[in-house]
Amino acid sequence: MRPKRSTRFWRNRNSGSAYLFLTPALLILGLVILYPLLNTLWLSFQHKVLIRPDQDSFVGMENYIKALGDQEVRQATLHTIVFTVCSVGVKVVLGMLGALLLNVKMRGAAWVRSFYMLPWLVPSVVAALVWRWIFNDQFGIANGMLATFGGPAVNWLGQDTTAMFAVILVDIWRGLPLMTLLLLAGLQMIPRETIDATLIDGANAWQRYWRVILPLMKPTLIMVGTLSLIGTFNSFNIIYVMTGGGPAHATEILVTHVFRVAFQSFNFGYGSTLAVLILVLITILTSLYNRLLSGRGEAKL
């Protein structure tokens, strides 16, 4: 976007300042992320159980081999994928609709937008507590509402599918505002006339929307979707507080499982191995997503 001469202009200034400007960021990131990352990588090749310091040893790939055959890990991976795909899928679709809605000039839209952002302002731990109460089988409003319509009381957090549904719903609730905001920001770069035309032009609105706006939104969708994918994959607080991974592991995803391995069994070696595998899995997932959307398999930075 910048004219070329500009680059030359800047190159002629000292590029030492660039490093100076980068130093604080790199220092902090290097200290608090790089070091723990290397530490985790190192531990992943060790047998290290905190309560058995006498058994510490280097075991090479043993932990990795164990992880690949671990039934619990397989189960947690499956749950993670279900959780992430459902949550991100719904967030993207609803977020897109919400963004289109909020992008319209309308009296009162500012108010709607403010209230729309509300869930983002509730800390996720707190949100999870609130929803646990909503889903309480006897006194919760979820069953209260079902009862008004003559529905049966549902044991939300006590059954596999409903518990999974509940944690996904809460993750969507918490994540939808930010998702919408980012998509809305992307929408605002598309000329307003283009969008207004697609929306108001009756019969063909949907087709036009599909043909005109979506391609324009593609870069935004790639960015925002990738971010959301990563965030959701690592969503710990909501599950930890709402179900603790239960009932009987039904909502156990990889991060909560690793937490359990590391802090309840104190198996730091194995826990680190799983952490490394999670990183690999996230990388695969995000690049798959990017390939899916960009069609050429390259994410634009």
Binding site: A25, L29, L31, V32, I33, Y35, P36, L37, N39, T40, L227, I230, F233, N234, F236, V255, V258, F259, A262, F263, F268, G271, A275, I278, L279, I282, T283, T286, L301
Partner: peptide, 22 residues
């Protein structure tokens, strides 16, 4: 820049102990 973006992917929970020690 790419390195910083990948840093985004790292779930903090997994680094609890190394960061605690740090």
């Amino acid at each position: 820049l790419f390195g910083i973006l990948t840093a985004q992917m790292i779930p903090g929970v997994l680094f609890l102990l190394p960061i605690f020690v740090l």
